[in-house]
Amino acid sequence: MNSLNRNQTRVLIAKPGLDGHDRGAKVIARALRDAGFEVIYTGLHQTPEMIIQAALQEDVHVVGLSILSGAHNALVPEVISGIRSAGLNDVLFLVGGIIPEEDFEGLKQAGAALVFTPGTSLEEIITSIDRLAPRR
């Protein structure tokens, strides 16, 4: 696989649902920007529909969903299927937050490539994107 051109890789960091915990999302958005990616952050309290629209408008390569409220099983599949059915088939989906291990499998089946829990290093997230983001 050819190496990734970070500055042509658009990453959408999104906060779905009512959860207000945005420390992680903002730190990651900033780290990805500092690493050279083009980063768009949705801000808080986004419905799945708002995130789908943002992903389409920005024609993103990567969507990172940050959820610490426990609503991941309801929200993640809705965002992923919405983006895919609108025609963006190759988007890399990452999920981060307080996610119990029992739920990893379900989220992966819904289309999340990786699930990051607290304690994940920025380095690991960056290299995962380098490795897995679509080359368009």
Partner: peptide, 8 residues
């Protein structure tokens, strides 16, 4: 409230 009821 989808998915959030009684969670946190």
């Amino acid at each position: 409230a989808l998915g959030e009821v009684g969670k946190c």
